[in-house]
Simulated scan of single mutants.
Amino acid sequence: MTASRVWAVFSTFRPGEGAVEAVASVASQVGGVIVVDDGSGDRGRTALDLIAASGATVVRRSSNDGIAAALNDGIARARAVGAEFVLTFDQDSHVPPGFVAALLTAYDAAVADGVRVGLVVPEFFAGVRQQRGAPAAFGDAANVIQSGMLVPTAVIDAIGALREDFFIDLVDTEFELRARNRGLRVLAAGGVRMEHALGTKYRREIFGHPVRVPGVPPEITLSTPFRYFYRLRNRVVLDREYFRSAPRQLLRDSVLDAIHFANALWVAAPRGALARVYRAAVVAAVRGRMGRMPAALSSIAAQIRWNAPMIAEEDQ
């Protein structure tokens, strides 16, 4: 098994220098790199030009259709040139030397043991462990993240591509659950690590004083406000469609998400705007309104700010 059979596919949106570094970190480990820009327009042009100059294939989409659509575009192009595996990435994911070979080694070991493998992810993603149980060369993964996800192209033939109507958020979880429903194992490669930014950290405060409650972390990691529409809508859809097949996982994840949504509402300013985003997300899920959020709601989300002090990287 050689890395030349693997093609890396990146989705970008208004990329900067970090995207150039991310592509460079994996380029020598794979047969080729395809970068699909999701409608950035002129923003990010410098970074995309540098990436193209490095030898990667750069595809500039004219519209912003979401991460799943961008990745599916890149995956289709990788398959057209004979890729047997695709390795998907976000624009801010960096991999160490030997990363791709380690994922392939775990895949080979699992196949040799008679496992029907759906996909393989690193054991550690941004410091969060994705492998269940005791450390092993490969083991079942929990709550996979699409960045750093190795997928045989034959699996895409069998279960379909990433779900584009989710637009962004939980696209990876839906693919994971779909693979398991088809009898495929979702694995984490033991000892493999990948660095990634999971969001911005903020300090919990009440009237300017840090919150110190036993069992409650003193900080909270938050995404850009508009993301909470997709995260809540897609969570409701996932629960409705997959709860019977994965009740424990979805119950746990839904409880954790509910806590996170409450925390975000606590520090949102104005709170009413985020509450409207939440309400619209639930209504969209119930009525089957998928795809991109309405422009009017996007304008409301753009007004939201997090009323909490940001934690500088050196303070973390």
Score class of each variant (00 low, 15 high):
residue 33 V to D: 06
residue 3 A to G: 15
residue 6 V to E: 11
residue 202 Y to P: 00
residue 169 D to I: 11
residue 187 L to R: 03
residue 224 T to Y: 11
residue 140 D to C: 05
residue 20 V to N: 07
residue 258 A to D: 01
residue 129 R to T: 01
residue 50 L to P: 04
residue 277 V to R: 05
residue 9 V to K: 10
residue 296 A to I: 03
residue 52 A to R: 15
residue 234 N to C: 00
residue 65 D to E: 12
residue 150 L to Q: 08
residue 121 V to D: 04
residue 225 P to W: 09
residue 194 M to G: 06
residue 76 A to Y: 05
residue 108 D to R: 09
residue 200 T to S: 11
residue 22 A to I: 13
residue 169 D to E: 10
residue 192 V to N: 03
residue 307 N to P: 01
residue 290 M to I: 02
residue 275 A to R: 08
residue 172 D to F: 08
residue 124 F to M: 14
residue 197 A to V: 14
residue 3 A to N: 15
residue 269 A to R: 05
residue 278 Y to F: 13
residue 316 Q to I: 13
residue 63 S to M: 09
residue 229 F to S: 04
residue 199 G to C: 05
residue 23 V to R: 11
residue 55 G to H: 10
residue 151 V to P: 00
residue 276 R to N: 04
residue 306 W to V: 07
residue 227 R to N: 04
residue 145 I to F: 05
residue 25 S to F: 15
residue 213 V to T: 03
residue 57 T to Y: 12
residue 267 V to D: 01
residue 14 R to F: 03
residue 242 Y to K: 12
residue 228 Y to Q: 02
residue 258 A to W: 00
residue 76 A to S: 05
residue 272 G to S: 08
residue 198 L to R: 06
residue 274 L to A: 00
residue 203 R to G: 04
residue 188 A to I: 04
residue 286 V to S: 06
residue 91 Q to E: 13
residue 61 R to A: 10
residue 290 M to C: 06
residue 231 R to F: 01
residue 143 N to M: 14
residue 75 I to E: 02
residue 68 A to S: 05
residue 105 T to R: 04
residue 293 M to Y: 07
residue 241 E to W: 07
residue 263 N to A: 13
residue 180 R to G: 09
residue 63 S to T: 09
residue 108 D to W: 13
residue 160 G to L: 12
residue 102 A to S: 05
residue 29 Q to A: 15
residue 62 S to H: 14
residue 302 A to S: 12
residue 146 Q to H: 13
residue 164 E to L: 08
residue 130 Q to Y: 07
residue 126 A to R: 12
residue 145 I to Q: 11
residue 310 M to Q: 15
residue 236 V to G: 00
residue 174 E to F: 13
residue 161 A to D: 10
residue 288 G to T: 07
residue 290 M to E: 11
residue 196 H to I: 07
residue 115 V to E: 01
residue 123 E to D: 08
residue 282 V to T: 10
residue 133 G to H: 05
residue 133 G to C: 03
residue 8 A to Y: 08
residue 289 R to F: 11
residue 131 Q to W: 00
residue 137 A to L: 10
residue 244 R to E: 07
residue 129 R to L: 02
residue 36 V to T: 05
residue 42 D to W: 08
residue 74 G to N: 08
residue 72 N to I: 02
residue 272 G to K: 11
residue 130 Q to P: 01
residue 98 G to H: 10
residue 252 R to M: 02
residue 64 N to C: 11
residue 196 H to E: 12
residue 39 G to L: 09
residue 116 R to Q: 07
residue 259 I to N: 00
residue 2 T to E: 15
residue 1 M to P: 06
residue 307 N to L: 14
residue 238 L to W: 02
residue 136 A to F: 06
residue 241 E to A: 14
residue 25 S to R: 12
residue 215 G to I: 01
residue 127 G to N: 08
residue 62 S to I: 08
residue 151 V to M: 13
residue 45 R to H: 03
residue 66 G to W: 08
residue 15 P to C: 10
residue 189 A to Y: 06
residue 197 A to C: 10
residue 144 V to D: 00
